Computed example of a mutant assay.
Amino acid sequence: MPTRRAVTGRSREPRARFAEELRSLRTRRGESLRQLGERLGWDWSLFGKMENGETLGGPEVVEALDQYYGTPGLLLALWELAINDQTQFRERYRRYMALEATATSLWHFAVSVLPGLLQTPAYAREVLAAGGLKGPELEQQVQARMGRRTLLDGDDAPPFRTILSEAALRTPLCDARHWREQLEYLSGVAERSNVTVHVLPFRAGFHGLMNTDVWYLRLPDGRTVAYTESGYRGELIEEYAAVERLQLSYDVVRDQALSPAESRKFVLRILEEVPCDPST
């Protein structure tokens, strides 16, 4: 669903609204990001990431921007709204994780990134780093993601079905060796009895989930809940009618996807395209 906009044409989503205001103030002055960085004494790439929504920055840089642009308190107020929205995102995600741990079955659709349950450490590290994490926090999140993979281990592991957009398989890691390891791991996991992997090829065209990464959880009480997410926010959906609509979209996409056997062959063909490490 597109980000809602007010009558002013500006986003109502706090993080996007903050980024829009930063970009608008700078462009009205006719400055480049590099010029802004030189004048305020910060690395210009930080301002670029803030304007693209990749990071919110800290209060000290936001206060400096407020002073520089002559907008006392405006940017800091927008920043606080965005920070609080991120806190709500984490709370929703924590609730989702609690439900995932008790789910009797899971199914999923990936737009451009492989699901965390099927990621190798190198893949998880590069994806999380692209989202702005670094240092100890990055390593902590990688370990947490690897811990989630145990959900699919053991005799009592729940059934897991995923449909991977071809884009998720055509976006490699920077290191070809790590990308090869990820594809090999994916191919191996797809052979497990409780894991079903489908590939949705580009030729399937437009569909109802093309902008939405979504998880569905069947809970012990028989209910199904859904969780949709982007790089910056997620939404836990429990209302029956809304979940039903998403399930119908998923069923249509599954009908367009390759069978599990064809999908595994597809992954192996992509694996053959990855350059081998000449040192091995």
Rank of each mutant, 00 (worst) to 15 (best):
M1T: 10
T3M: 13
A6E: 14
G9H: 10
S11E: 05
R12K: 13
E13L: 06
S24E: 14
R29H: 14
G41W: 08
D43L: 11
W44N: 04
W44F: 14
K49M: 13
T55R: 06
A64H: 05
L65I: 11
T71L: 06
P72N: 07
P72T: 08
G73S: 07
G73I: 09
L75H: 02
L78T: 02
A82Q: 02
Q86T: 14
E91K: 12
E100P: 03
A101I: 09
A103R: 00
F109N: 00
L114Q: 02
Y123T: 05
V127C: 01
K134Y: 13
M146P: 02
D156S: 13
P158V: 07
T171F: 11
L173D: 01
H178L: 08
W179Y: 12
E181W: 06
L183V: 05
Y185E: 05
R192F: 09
T196L: 07
H198N: 08
R203Y: 08
G205Y: 09
G205A: 08
H207C: 06
M210L: 15
T212V: 12
T212W: 02
D213E: 10
D221Y: 03
Y227P: 00
I237L: 02
A241E: 04
A241M: 02
E244P: 01
L248S: 15
V252C: 07
P260D: 03
P275H: 11
T280E: 15
